[in-house]
Design a protein around this nucleic acid. Structure first.
Lengths: 114, 114
DNA sequence: ACAATTATTGGCGATATTGCCAACAATGTC
DNA sequence: GACATTGTTGGCAATATCGCCAATAATTGT
C-alpha cells in the first residue's frame, strides 16, 4: 500500500468510523430533520449527556456536524446534506448485500479445480 | 432509542464499521476490479496474511464479499456492486463535508482563566 | 506417505473505543 | 454575588479492535 493510498484510505476510514455507531447514526438522523441541542439528542439516545457530548465531538472532528452556541445551548446541525445522501446509499446497499445478520452462507460444495 | 431503532441502527453501524479500516477499503477497491485470492490482497495491503485473512472474515461476516474455494486458493469477490456505489457516495460526500482532516475550526480565542 | 502451498484460527500484547462519574466552564437568572 | 442550567473535559474500567506468531486445516504435487 503506497503512501498516497494509505493517506486517502485512512481518511476515508476515519469518516466511516465516525458513522459506525448506533447512537451517532441516530443523532445524524435527527439532525437531518432539524438542528438540535445536546439535551434533545441526549433524550433521544438515552445515554448520559457526557457520552452524547463525546459522540458529538467525534462527528465534529470529522466535519460532519457544525455547532453554534446560543446562550448555554449548543445547537448542532449537519454540515451538509451529503451526509444524508451517503447514508441513503448505505441503506440501499444494505438491502442488497446484507441479508441477515450473518448473510454469507458458507457453501463448501465448490468442487472446482483450478 | 426504541428497540426497533436500536436494531436497525446497530446493524447499519456494523456494516459501516466493517468498512472503516484502510486495509479493508483497499481490498474492496481491488475486488471492484476483479476477484482476488488472499495472497494477492496480502501483497497489496502489505500486512501479514493472517491479518488480511481476518479482515476478510470481517467483510464476509457482514456479507460484503463472497468466497469461493479453488484448490488451496480462496477467491474473494464483492457480493454486490452496491458496495462500489456506497463508497462512491462516501467519497463524493467527503469532498464536501470533510475539508481538512480537522475541518471544524472552533473558536481559537479561548481565554482560559483558571 | 511426505512435503509444499494456501489460508484460517487461537492466542497474545498493544492500542482504541465506549460509557459513566466527577469536575469544570460558560451563560443566564435571581 | 449566589445559583441553576447546559455542555465539555479528564479519568477510569470494561470492552473491542488490531497485527503478529504459532498451530492447524485443506489441498496439491512428488
Amino acid at each position: 500500500m503506497n503512501k498516497q493510498d494509505t493517506q486517502r484510505l485512512t481518511k476515508r476510514a476515519a469518516l466511516l468510523k465516525s458513522l459506525a455507531h448506533p447512537s451517532r447514526l441516530l443523532m445524524i438522523e435527527m439532525l437531518e430533520k432539524a438542528p438540535r441541542c445536546v439535551g434533545e439528542l441526549t433524550e433521544a439516545v438515552g445515554s448520559d449527556i457526557t457520552t452524547v457530548s463525546k459522540h458529538l465531538a467525534v462527528l465534529r472532528r470529522v466535519g460532519l456536524v457544525h455547532v453554534e452556541k446560543h446562550g448555554t445551548y449548543s445547537e448542532y446541525s449537519l454540515a451538509c446534506d451529503c451526509v444524508t445522501h451517503m447514508l441513503d446509499c448505505i441503506e440501499s446497499g444494505m438491502g442488497k448485500t446484507v441479508r441477515g445478520s450473518t448473510c454469507e452462507t458458507p457453501k463448501p460444495e465448490n468442487k472446482q479445480k483450478k
